[in-house]
Simulated assay, not measured.
Amino acid sequence: MANRRSLPLLDDLKAKAILKQICQEHGISLDLLRNLIEVQRDNLGRGRQFGISQEFSAVISDFIEQQEEAEDAS
């Protein structure tokens, strides 16, 4: 992803720890959450945000593929 200003939510150590815990409870990674937030941020100001669903799908598909590869490797 392009170099962007940081997210205060991910810069605050307490908030980040809570997010990590929630992500673990739901079987996702903090990186996935960060990538989904970046997709949304990249689409801000586009009005109706055409194409955002495809971008979300691509990020989620990449996450699933990485999970499957990790399971196959173990």
Rank of each mutant, 00 (worst) to 15 (best):
L9S: 12
L36E: 04
I22R: 15
M1T: 05
L7P: 00
G47D: 05
I52M: 10
I28Q: 01
S29M: 08
I37L: 15
Q54L: 04
L10I: 03
R34T: 04
I60P: 08
A2T: 14
R41F: 01
L9K: 09
Q54M: 03
A17Q: 15
R34K: 13
G27N: 13
L36C: 10
F50E: 03
G51V: 04
D42M: 08
M1V: 03
D42E: 12
L13H: 10
I60K: 09
R34A: 15
Q54I: 00
Q24D: 15
L13Q: 13
I64Q: 08
G51T: 02
D62K: 13
S29K: 02
F50I: 05
Q24C: 05
E69C: 03
A58E: 14
I28A: 03
I28T: 07
L13V: 07
F56N: 01
F56R: 04
R5G: 09
V39T: 02
I52Y: 02
S29F: 02
L7S: 07
E55V: 00
L9N: 06
I64G: 01
V59W: 02
A58T: 11
D42H: 05
L9H: 09
L10Y: 12
D62V: 01
K20P: 01
D31C: 03
I52C: 00
E55D: 10
A15R: 14
K16Y: 02
L36A: 08
F63A: 08
E38C: 04
S61V: 06
F56C: 01
L32F: 11
E55M: 03
Q40T: 09
Q21C: 04
E69K: 15
L9W: 11
K14I: 07
P8H: 10
L44K: 15
G51N: 04
